[in-house]
Design a binder for these strands. Structure first.
Length: 121
DNA sequence: TGGGTGACCATAG
DNA sequence: ACTATGGCCACCC
């Protein structure tokens, strides 16, 4: 067991849970950005933390579609953190997302803004 | 205690 | 349009 693996602790549990919760709401064939999720949770969280949280998404029991989270450029910056470098692209293409050079082509159409699409009760 | 790091983002030149 | 820089927040050594 490598000691550099991300561990879910009492401290970050709620934070991770919030992130995963939003990510799971991303519809098929759509994608959003780290910053959008950060903004959804409150700008304070910081966009970089989202990616860090995603690193722990693999250990979650509930499925987390981490492949639907890209950077603001629509680029698949996190693909190297998947089991396979091509896993992220394959998953997106399987949902009908067009990708070229590790970048979503029709990102404008695919983009899903949680702050807009989500309604808070 | 403090400094380094990260699947990022916005701004300035 | 592209590069450089700072900010962001939680974690690790």
């Amino acid at each position: 067991m490598p000691n550099n693996s991300i561990k879910i602790t009492e401290k970050n549990k709620d934070y991770f849970d919030s992130v995963f919760q939003v990510v799971r709401l991303i519809p098929e064939g759509r994608a959003t950005s780290y910053g959008a999720i950060s903004n959804c949770l409150g700008t304070k969280s910081g966009a970089r933390m989202i990616g860090w949280a995603m690193n722990a998404s693999h250990s979650q029991k509930e499925y987390v579609p981490a492949h639907r989270v890209v950077n603001r450029n629509g680029m698949l910056t996190g693909k190297h953190h998947f089991p396979s470098p091509i896993a992220m692209q394959e998953a997106l293409e399987g949902e009908g997302v067009e990708i070229k050079d590790d970048k979503i082509q029709n990102y404008k159409q695919v983009y899903w803004d949680p702050t807009v699409e989500l309604t808070f009760d």
